[in-house]
Design a protein around this nucleic acid. Structure first.
Length: 664
RNA sequence: GGCUGCGUAGCUCAGUUGGUUAGAGCACAGCAUUCAUAAUGCUGGGGUCGUUGGUUCAAGUCCAACCGCAGCUACCA
């Protein structure tokens, strides 16, 4: 029995799970379920990737703590995956004590062995927001071609790459302030010391050949030291021995795989962390990732592991990106589909099956063709596979008491179907489920052809041919059963229904090799319904609507008077103001809006004493969609100016204004 | 700009080390069938294999340039 630990890349705690995430988790889950069906021990862990400046800023915008924000998203993400039948053994968080423990341990070991050092770095600093700016938060003019509005790493116009400090007329995207050049001490992993190790490691079976080719670019071009620290304020783990330095999120994210596993071990008898992570163990570790994060998983991660005396990954399975109708997923086209939106209208197994037809175990991009999706799923699953059971079950039930024949009538067909197991197993193992599905549907074609040739409906009336009819239909059911086994890693829910129909225990891989004989089965109920194209259209419409809402809210620089008039601004009087338990940025305000009262949570605690707010007038957005926060529902928004922190200034109408008056 | 990979019928994809008239499924057309969720079976039309040039007796397959797509380019998580 193999002992295997499997991971999918950690989704970021800054948005909903979408089809791109689902692609990776479905691919991983198919492989995991296949391994379990083969009788291997296969543990599948994942987590939300929670740290970084983005989380900090998002929490600030929502007026909640980062901890509250990431826990809400973690729960949502875990639920989305569960509903798609993704069988994580643990879906954890990188913001966990286990993760902090292993980050410290890894860092300490690296430092002890001389793999780390510090150096001063010149970096752009936002004097208003008081933080160092990552490239993505900087814009300016390209130092080479002069194009304006370019990010801090490279130019979209001329393709030049440069350092953020070279930008002409740089601006902070957070405050629009002109950044200052400041010095800061940073911590580095001395990657060049791992060059020989990495050259060796990337030449093994651990990575696909095209991935090794890509990695050769870094390995032959010369590795640079890796900057693993960030300055406060930063949402993350503090580096041991420092006051204001934090681990860069890409340092602690992969360690999150270990942390999630440790957390599972702590509540699972017989599961030992060291069995999987000590050097030289026979247990396997497999990572599934997209081609966008190859360098983190195939350079930094194995180097860090080997330098801190942990085992290195058995294999990194890299997949390509998902396009929809041949183009990048796009919010305006309605193709940036969230998992939750999909689930409102469609069965998750449609997507699992369709994506399975696309996986080839390589890094090619995969296209989600909307029409193709509908046709492929309906034709293959309903028309071919399930149809075999559907057309045979009636005969068995009505004429033979629901009992299958005692022997296999035609060994040629049965041998072809039952004998495909080894080949299919190899295809699943290598990740080529596309080819596996093609082989399986070809077997279904054999089954349907066999039934058509033997025309059981014609011979049913002939008492001399009763046995023949019984044998043909029983074989049909057995073909279906084998196909259900072969498809079970992809379609677990369908397989479960099939188990009920066949009245059998959980199907394992080897069950496909032995037929079900002289066995009573249940009445047939539809195992799979066809996709209605209209349901898919609704998904696209809903996605487009979500996007329109979001972009209307933030994108346009100028608004028409119509847009402005949609905002219902009212004068309100503060009746009560209170601290909120567990929220360090919020105040709960009870407002008199003229004809009624309402409660609003405002992120102004850092600047206002609640006692001094009572009785004063403020301006409130009265028709803002109510937002459910951890502490209750916020029904509106109080207007204020300023960058935040101590500098928040509430708007106030002049004397004479009354609660409820509209602001125009 | 550099790097990795991809570009084959209307659509989604197969095409091993270059070797006879380039394949499958879906879609489409015709026929058959009616057991089955308008499901199935048989037959058929449809491609100058992204473009151009080269190597070779022979190129979808090897080489070069160009075009298009995706990703990376070390601070995008």
């Amino acid at each position: 029995m193999r002992r295997i630990l499997v991971t999918s890349a950690l989704p970021n705690a800054n948005g909903a799970i979408h089809l791109g995430h689902m692609l990776e988790h479905i691919q991983t889950d198919i492989w995991v379920r296949f391994q379990r069906m083969m009788g291997n021990q296969c543990i599948y862990v994942c987590a939300d990737d929670t740290h970084g400046t983005a989380t900090m800023l998002a929490a600030e915008r929502e007026g909640v703590t980062p901890e509250a924000l990431i826990e809400r998203l973690r729960a949502e993400h875990a639920e989305d995956f569960r509903r798609f039948h993704v069988s994580h053994d643990n879906y954890y968080s990188t913001h966990s004590p286990e993760n902090e423990h292993y980050n410290r341990e890894i860092y300490t070991r690296l430092a002890e062995r001389g793999y780390t050092y510090t150096a001063d770095v010149e970096q752009l600093y936002d004097p208003v927001r008081k933080l160092f700016l990552a490239d993505r938060y900087l814009k300016g003019n390209c130092p080479r071609c002069g194009a304006d509005d370019q990010y801090g790493d490279n130019c979209q116009e001329c393709g030049a790459t440069y350092d953020a400090t070279e930008l002409v007329e740089p601006r902070s995207m957070l405050s629009d302030a002109e950044p200052e050049l400041r010095n800061s001490t940073h911590y580095f992993v001395d990657l060049p010391q791992f060059a020989d190790f990495l050259k060796e490691w990337t030449a093994t079976e651990a990575v696909q050949s095209e991935v090794a080719n890509k990695l050769a670019e870094w390995l032959t071009g010369g590795l640079k030291a890796w900057d693993i620290s960030r300055d406060a304020p930063y949402f993350g783990f503090r580096i041991p021995g420092t006051e204001d330095k934090y681990f860069y999120v890409w340092m602690d994210a992969p360690v999150g795989y270990m942390a999630s596993f440790q957390n599972l071990c702590d509540r699972t008898e017989g599961l030992e962390f060291d069995d999987f992570w000590r050097p030289g163990t026979q247990a396997e570790v497999h990572h599934f990732i997209g081609k966008d994060i190859i360098n983190f998983h195939c350079l930094f991660w194995p180097a860090v592991l080997s330098g801190s005396d942990f085992r290195t990954p058995t294999k990194v399975h890299v997949h390509g990106m998902l396009t929809v109708d041949g183009k990048q997923m796009s919010k305006s086209r309605g193709t940036f589909i969230n998992a939750g939106t999909y689930l409102e209208h469609l069965d998750p197994e449609y997507l699992r099956y369709y994506l399975a037809t696309k996986f080839g175990g390589n890094t090619d991009d995969m296209d989600f063709g909307l029409d193709d999706f509908v046709q492929r799923v309906n034709a293959d699953l309903v028309g071919k596979v399930v149809n075999i059971a559907s057309r045979c079950a009636g005969f068995i039930g009505k004429n033979f008491g629901g009992r299958l024949a005692g022997d296999i009538r035609d060994t040629e067909l049965w041998d072809a179907v039952s004998g495909a197991g080894d080949e299919l197993a190899e295809l699943y193992e290598s990740g080529d489920t596309g080819r596996a599905v093609r082989r399986i549907t070809a077997l279904a074609d054999l089954g349907n052809r066999y039934i058509a040739e033997h025309e059981p409906w014609k011979h049913l009336r002939d008492p001399d041919r009763r046995d023949e009819v019984h044998g043909v239909c029983s074989l049909g059911i057995n073909v279906f059963r084998a196909l259900a086994v072969y498809l079970k890693p992809i379609l677990p829910a369908m397989a479960e229904k099939a188990e009920g129909f066949l009245r059998v225990e959980q199907l394992a891989w080897h069950d496909a090799a032995t037929p079900l004989l002289d066995h009573e089965i249940d009445r047939f109920k539809p195992l799979f319904t066809r996709i209605d194209k209209k349901a898919l259209d609704k998904v696209i419409e809903a996605t487009r609507a979500e996007a329109a809402e979001a972009s209307a809210a933030q994108e346009s620089h100028t608004v028409g008077i119509d847009d402005f008039q949609k905002v219902d601004l009212r004068v309100a009087k503060v009746l009560a103001a209170n601290f909120v338990d567990g929220a360090d940025k919020l105040l709960a305000l009870d407002l008199d809006v003229g004809d009624h009262q309402r409660r609003v949570f405002a992120g102004i605690r850092s600047a206002y004493d609640p006692a001094k707010l009572v009785g004063r007038l403020v301006v409130v957005v009265a028709n803002l969609e109510p937002r459910t926060m951890r502490f209750g529902v916020s029904e509106g928004m109080v207007l204020a100016a300023g960058p935040g922190g101590r500098d928040i200034f509430l708007l106030a109408p002049d004397a004479g204004a009354e609660p409820g008056m509209q602001v125009t």
